[in-house]
C-alpha cells in the first residue's frame, strides 16, 4: 500500500513537473513542490496538484490536514517554504482578476456600516478601478448577483442583521460579482441552513456550466459525490486527486482519514446504491 502511495506521489508529481508552459497556461491552478511550515513543523508537504478547468473540486481531509492552508498558500496570503503556484500559467500576483476568494466567515467585522448590496458591489471594485465611484449599473449588477442567491429582498439590510446562512450567501454573491474564472471557497457549507446549502449548490452548478473552476474546502464527505466532480484528498500531502468516480474510494479515504471511517463507509455505501448513478462506477460498490 505504501509503495503504491509512493508510486502515486511520484506519478502525480511527475505529471506536474512534466507540464509544459503551454499546458500550464491552460490549467486554472498548478501547484508544484509546495511546502509550508510553521516553525519546523510541516503543514503542507511536497504538494503537487494540477486542477483541470471547468470542474467543481472538493478539497477534503481530516482536521489539521492543511486544507485552508493550501488555499491561502496558493493565494500568497501565507509564506511558502518552497514551491511554485501558477494560475493560468502565471503567478497569482499577475492573475488577481481571474481569482475569486470566499474566506471563512470569522474574520469579518459584522458591525461595519455596510449593507448586503454594498458587500456584493465590493466584488466589482477591482473592475471599476481607482477614483471612479460605484455607478447605478454596478448596483444593478450587484442586485442581480444577490437575486441569484435568493437574497435580493435583503439588499438593504446591514450585514449583522442577516442570519449566518444569509451572510454566507451574500459573500458568495460577492464572489460571483467578481466574475472570476477560478474560485476558492473555504468551507462555504460550514454552519449554514438548508436553504443556503441549496443556494450554494445551485450556484456551483451554474458556475460550472459557465466554464468556471471552483476549488472548495469541504468537510462533509457524504455530499462530496453528489456536489462535486473532482476531489483532492489531502492530509499534509496530496493522497490522491482526480475525478470523484475513480479517486473517491474507500481505500483512498482510509489513507486520508485513518480510522474515522464508519460514517464514511456508510455514506459511500448509500451513495453507491443511488439509482441515478450508472452502476459499478466506484470502489464504494465493493463495500
Amino acid at each position: 500500500m505504501a509503495a503504491q502511495a509512493q508510486a502515486n506521489r511520484q506519478s502525480s508529481s511527475a505529471r506536474v513537473h512534466a507540464l509544459t508552459e503551454d499546458q500550464r497556461r491552460r490549467l486554472p491552478l498548478a501547484i508544484q513542490d509546495l511546502t509550508v511550515a510553521y516553525h519546523r513543523k510541516p503543514v503542507l508537504w511536497d504538494v503537487d496538484l494540477a486542477i483541470p478547468e471547468g470542474r467543481l473540486i472538493a478539497v477534503v481531509g481530516p482536521n489539521g490536514a492543511g486544507k485552508s492552508t493550501l488555499i491561502k498558500a496558493a493565494l500568497g496570503l501565507i509564506p511558502r517554504a518552497s514551491g511554485r503556484v501558477t494560475i493560468y500559467g502565471q503567478p497569482y500576483e499577475k492573475q488577481r482578476r481571474l481569482v475569486g476568494y470566499v474566506p471563512q466567515r470569522e474574520s469579518v467585522d459584522w458591525d461595519f456600516p455596510v449593507n448586503a448590496l454594498d458587500v456584493v458591489a465590493m466584488g466589482l471594485y477591482g473592475r471599476i478601478g481607482w477614483f471612479r465611484p460605484v455607478a447605478r449599473a454596478h448596483r444593478r449588477r450587484a442586485l442581480e448577483e444577490l437575486e441569484k442567491v435568493g437574497m435580493a429582498p435583503y439588499a438593504q439590510r446591514q450585514i449583522s442583521q442577516l442570519s449566518g446562512g444569509q451572510q454566507q450567501r451574500v459573500f458568495l454573491a460577492r464572489a460571483l460579482a467578481q466574475d472570476a474564472d477560478l474560485y476558492f471557497m473555504d468551507e462555504p457549507f460550514a454552519g449554514v441552513d438548508v436553504a443556503t446549502e441549496r443556494a450554494i449548490i445551485a450556484l456551483l452548478k451554474e458556475l460550472k456550466a459557465a466554464g468556471k473552476t471552483c476549488v472548495v474546502v469541504h468537510h462533509d464527505l457524504q455530499t462530496v459525490p453528489t456536489y462535486f466532480d473532482h476531489v483532492v484528498l489531502l492530509n499534509m500531502r496530496v493522497v490522491e486527486a482526480g475525478p470523484v468516480d475513480t479517486v473517491f474510494t474507500e481505500e483512498n479515504l482510509k489513507k486520508t482519514y485513518g480510522g474515522k471511517l464508519t460514517l464514511l463507509s456508510q455514506a459511500l455505501f448509500e451513495y453507491s446504491k443511488d439509482p441515478r448513478l450508472p452502476s459499478g462506477t466506484r470502489g464504494g460498490g465493493a463495500l
Partner: peptide, 12 residues
C-alpha cells in the same frame, strides 16, 4: 508518509 497513511486521523 506511511505513518500519515496508517494513522491518518491523528497524524498531522
Amino acid at each position: 508518509e506511511t505513518y500519515l497513511i496508517e494513522h491518518a486521523d491523528v497524524a498531522p
